[in-house]
Design a protein around this nucleic acid. Structure first.
Lengths: 164, 164
DNA sequence: CTCATTTAGTTAGCTTGCTAAGTATATTAA
DNA sequence: TTAATATACTTAGCAAGCTAACTAAATGAG
């Protein structure tokens, strides 16, 4: 797990992203484990509070930037732990709204300090303006990736779609 | 897959890391798919060439920054595709050295252009000094995470190890 | 030399991301 | 109204990271 400066230098940016993301997740996971939560579970609850209790599964998935299908399992687990409930939306019979239970709300309160602690520790000694630069660069990469991705899809449609 | 600037702003740094890493990997995966390769497979071959054909599995895993156990599956697949072979090291009967086959070498040559294309595209319009900043910040986070991780482990050992 | 410890590799099984395919409800067009 | 399409959810199964537990070879202490 320990990663020397030299080792890190040999990795290109994209490789480092995945590596550091995994590392961050592992640390957070370990910190939140005593509450009986894993990274995807608490992050779903945390995000739900931020976008508003009662959001639809679809909205929550979008906010978390994961596929709806990926969210299903996590919500099922949280529901089984009686931390959230899903109820059909009265306005739209297809949609289901997600609500924290009382136990869920209580747990979110306990989570908060730990999440902030992890974030503060991992970001220690990093200048604010450097963080802004990182955010900016990540946004650029993300945009470039989205663009390249749609170009790739077009290409595939061309080749698969018409067999000229 | 498309990610608006606004959406991205709502994600905190660690969340963005995972998100962007997954995006990068998806794009690269799609680009390399015509060669019959997935991200972990070509990146193992690519790294093997860079650290030297004939490195041990252990060394390769370290260079890739993944666990040896995670590498096993990938190497087994590559071996089945006849792109690499694993042979017991004559100097150390425990270790196995990994070598590219002729087909493996040929494929690496084909990969190169595509990998560089992806990297160039995703990094387009990003200033070199900003990239340096990103590398630096990622290294800091990584170090902070390693440190926090070992503290967490110590805590666990304390609690589990001796029941004082 | 012999036994204990370390190290490299391996297997098995978990997690959580993904895509693809299916169902039920809403919406739109004819 | 009815049929076609779109949307929200769901299920099933794949991919590749991880840890834990095991084997076999090497190393080191006595």
């Amino acid at each position: 797990m320990t990663l020397s400066q030299d080792q890190l230098k040999q990795l290109s940016v994209p490789e480092r992203l995945g590596r550091v993301a995994r590392q961050w997740q592992a640390v957070a996971d370990r910190e939140l484990a005593p509450l009986g939560l894993t990274y995807p579970r608490w992050s779903a609850m945390w995000k739900l509070v931020r976008i508003g209790d009662g959001a639809s599964q679809k909205q929550l998935a979008e906010a978390l930037e994961i596929e709806l299908a990926s969210l299903m399992r996590t919500l099922a687990q949280l529901e089984q732990q009686s931390l959230v409930v899903r109820r059909v939306c009265p306005q739209d019979g297809r949609a289901k709204r997600v609500y924290l239970t009382d136990a869920g709300h209580a747990l979110v309160k306990k989570m908060e300090a730990k999440i902030l602690k992890v974030r503060r520790t991992l970001m220690a000694d990093i200048a604010d303006e450097d963080i802004e630069t990182v955010k900016h660069v990540l946004a650029m990469i993300s945009r470039n990736a989205s663009q390249m991705c749609s170009e790739q899809k077009q290409r595939e449609d061309k080749h698969g779609g018409d067999a000229q």
